[in-house]
Computed example of a mutant assay.
Amino acid sequence: MKKENIGQIASDFKTQVVILASFVAIMWIVEIADFVVFRGGLDRFGILPRHEIGLRGILLMPFLHGNFPHLIANTIPFITLGWLVMLRNTLDFWIATVTIVLVGGAGVWLFASPAYHIGASGLIFGYLGFLMLRGIFERSFAGIALSVIVGSAYGSLIWGVLPGRPGVSWEGHLFGFLSGVLAAYFVSRKTKSVL
């Protein structure tokens, strides 16, 4: 491997670490502030379906969590799946993230139950949908292999798109997953058009 290639890989990895660390740092800072200063009051900035004020939650939902166990449960899958999304191209992460936040958030706002919906799990399920379907859309060996690996490691999460435990936004999971699939379709078309 050429020295320039190693340098590019190291540079890309550093960028990816900074992006993921920044997202996670914001989530933790917001939750600490919510716990210490606002006593849980920031949760009302989540998505409130079919209320105009709830539209702001489309952008804010991934950064708000109900408590520290909720945030801890989301941190590792966010880092792992987020990094796998950007593994081939960091731009894929941004396309997937914007699509999941906007399209998935709009789905929650339009169709979810009337309560505040918060948490990064919509993004996590979106990344899961992206990774599981991208290889199929691309019809590439590497993409399908990654889809199989992600499906084996995280496939059991898929049941989270169905109604289950009270207080868990299964709608956020469902619309996150579906918007991740949509993002995978967009990215696979972009990749094919470049080839």
Rank of each mutant, 00 (worst) to 15 (best):
M1C: 00
M1G: 11
M1F: 04
K2W: 03
N5M: 14
N5V: 10
I9N: 13
I9T: 13
A10Q: 13
F13D: 12
K14C: 10
V17I: 14
V17T: 10
I19R: 05
F23C: 12
F23N: 12
V24R: 02
A25M: 10
A25E: 05
W28V: 14
I29W: 09
V30D: 04
V30I: 15
I32K: 05
D34K: 12
V36W: 14
V37Y: 14
R39C: 00
R39N: 13
L42S: 05
L42G: 08
F45W: 07
R50D: 10
H51S: 07
H51A: 03
E52I: 13
I53S: 13
I53F: 10
G54Y: 12
G54E: 11
G57V: 09
G57P: 05
L60G: 06
M61W: 12
M61V: 01
L64N: 06
L64A: 00
G66E: 11
G66T: 11
G66Y: 05
N67I: 07
N67S: 12
F68H: 00
P69D: 11
P69K: 08
L71T: 01
T75N: 03
W83N: 09
L84F: 15
V85R: 11
N89Y: 06
T90S: 15
D92K: 02
D92F: 13
F93N: 03
I95N: 14
T97H: 02
V98E: 03
I100R: 04
L102R: 08
V103D: 00
G104W: 01
G104H: 03
G105L: 09
G105W: 05
G107V: 08
F111G: 06
F111R: 06
S113Y: 07
S113K: 10
Y116E: 00
I124F: 08
G126L: 08
Y127Q: 06
Y127S: 09
L128D: 09
G129D: 07
L131N: 04
M132D: 02
G135M: 07
I136R: 02
I136P: 01
I136N: 05
F137S: 09
F141I: 09
F141E: 14
A142F: 06
I144A: 07
I144P: 06
I149C: 08
I149Y: 13
S152N: 12
Y154S: 00
G155R: 03
S156N: 11
I158V: 13
W159L: 10
L162E: 10
G164H: 02
S169F: 04
G172S: 15
L174P: 08
L174F: 15
G176L: 04
G176T: 10
G180L: 07
G180Y: 03
Y185W: 14
S188M: 02
T191I: 08
T191N: 10
L195A: 05
